[in-house]
């Protein structure tokens, strides 16, 4: 039992080692990366980061990603809230089938949808816009939101609703004023998951964008295929994509364990 802490420690080292290596690479010049092998940068340089912050084709990628991720979080959570309430409180014709059908969309491989999405959004003139990517990501984020929120809402006792209705609240008023504060942490966790899955997805985001809404992840793959790999800049870009995730984790750190269980412990 005394050695119990060893296992998580070893695991955390295993997790951090590749990330450290990326940080190490991002602080070296390209010449140093290719010529010498060292565990820390011999000539510390921030040039790689400067390239990203000064070149619009790089930093616009971060802005594009942020825009469609935020749009997606807003759409997913606001659509899912009333639906999750309906699933957790009422039974209606086809509710179970609808719930399973929603979940099947979370299971759908994005590769299946890449081409039809491309054609659909091209034909309605939304190709290469932020809203197209945000809507496409709703495919798997809305079912997930409904699922998580339903778990949290079922944990709120039904008496809360009944008391409010007896007190003469109308449903929308009750929902915003009384019910939403009750599941505030659930909403936070849901937003976190929507952010997470929209932020990490590449295939659909890349297929649906060309220039104006190109996400940072797609810009990075383009650099990989270009001649003369610039490892330093690539590593710096990678480090910068880790930052938003780390920030978001920091905000939800108190709910993270329960959140990952999707309110279903």
């Amino acid at each position: 039992m005394r050695w119990k802490w060893m296992l998580p420690t070893v695991y955390i080292c295993f997790l951090l080692l590749p990330i450290y290596w990326l940080l190490n690479m991002s602080l070296k010049t390209n010449a140093e990366i290719l010529s010498t092998f060292s565990f820390w940068p011999q000539h510390l340089t921030l040039d790689n980061y400067r390239v990203i912050f000064t070149d619009p084709s790089w930093y616009s990628g971060y802005i594009n990603s942020m825009i469609y991720v935020s749009l997606n979080v807003i759409i997913s959570v606001s659509c899912a809230l009333p639906a999750a309430y309906a699933f957790s409180r009422y039974s209606f014709v086809g509710d179970k089938h609808l719930f399973f059908w929603l979940l099947t969309n979370r299971m759908a491989p994005p590769a299946v949808f890449a081409l039809p999405f491309f054609q659909l959004y091209s034909s309605i003139g939304l190709f290469d816009t932020h809203i197209a990517v945000a809507l496409a990501h709703c495919l798997f984020n809305i079912p997930l939101s409904v699922w998580i929120l339903e778990g949290f809402m079922s944990g709120v006792p039904r008496e809360v609703d009944e008391t409010a209705f007896i007190d003469g609240y109308y449903w929308p008023h009750f929902f915003v004023k009384i019910f939403m504060p009750n599941i505030a942490s659930g909403i936070g966790v849901t937003a976190f998951f929507c952010f997470m899955f929209s932020w990490v997805e590449l295939l659909l985001a890349r297929t649906l964008t060309a220039v104006n809404a190109k996400p940072i992840a797609a810009i990075m793959t383009r650099t990989v295929s270009a001649s003369g790999l610039d490892w330093g800049v690539l590593a710096a870009a990678g480090m910068l994509t880790i930052l938003p995730g780390a920030l978001v984790i920091w905000f939800v750190r108190n709910h993270i364990a329960k959140g990952f269980a999707l309110g279903r412990v």
């Binding site: 990490v200 880790i242 364990a257």
Partner: peptide
Amino acid sequence: VCLITMALPLLIPWNVVGTIWQIF
């Protein structure tokens, strides 16, 4: 400490995960 470091890999874009391991 455990929770935050362990959640970190989950929030890295998937192609960056690929890049990290390519470099590693």
